[in-house]
Amino acid sequence: MKIIDKYILKRYLATFFVMLFLFIPIGIVIDVSEKVNKIIQNKVPFGKVALYYVDFTVYFANLLFPIFLFLSVIWFTSKLANNTEIIAILSSGISFQRFLRPYLIGATIVSVFALLMGFFIVPKASQGFNDFRYTYLKGNNKTRETSNVYREVSPGEFIYVSNFNINSKTAFDFSLKKFNDNKLDFTINAARIRFNEKDTTYTMYNYTKRKIGELDDRLETSMKKDTVFKFDLEDLTPVIYIAETLTLGELNDFIDKERERGSSNINTYLVVLYKKYSLPVSAFILTIIAVAVSSMKRRGGMGMNLAIGIGLAFTFIFFDKIFGTLAEKSSIPPFIAVWLPNFVFGILAIYLLRNAKR
Rank of each mutant, 00 (worst) to 15 (best):
M1N: 09
M1D: 06
K2D: 10
K2P: 06
Y7P: 02
L9H: 04
R11I: 01
Y12H: 13
L13R: 04
F16M: 08
M19N: 05
I28E: 01
I30A: 15
D31T: 09
D31A: 11
K35C: 07
V36G: 06
I40T: 14
I40S: 15
Q41L: 05
Q41R: 06
V44M: 01
Y52W: 14
Y59N: 13
F60D: 09
F65N: 09
F68C: 03
L69Y: 00
I74W: 04
E85K: 10
I89G: 08
G93V: 13
F99M: 03
Y103M: 02
A107M: 06
I109T: 03
S111K: 03
V112M: 14
L115Y: 02
L115Q: 05
L116H: 03
M117C: 09
G118C: 00
F119G: 08
F120R: 04
F120A: 04
V122P: 05
S126M: 12
N141Q: 13
T143P: 05
V149I: 11
R151E: 07
R151F: 03
F158R: 04
K177D: 13
K183F: 13
K183W: 08
D185F: 01
F186M: 05
F186E: 05
T187G: 06
I193C: 12
R194V: 14
N196W: 12
K198F: 14
T200D: 15
Y202I: 00
T203A: 04
M204W: 02
T208K: 15
E214G: 09
D216S: 15
D217Y: 12
E220P: 01
T221E: 12
F231Q: 03
E234G: 06
V239W: 10
I240W: 12
I240Y: 13
T247C: 09
L248I: 12
G249K: 09
L251A: 03
I255P: 10
D256M: 01
S263A: 05
T268H: 03
Y277W: 15
Y277S: 13
L279Q: 08
P280V: 08
P280T: 06
S282N: 09
I288A: 06
K297M: 12
R298H: 09
A313P: 07
T315M: 11
T315A: 12
I322R: 00
F323C: 02
S330E: 08
S330N: 11
S331R: 15
I332W: 04
I332R: 05
P333E: 10
A337G: 05
Y351M: 10
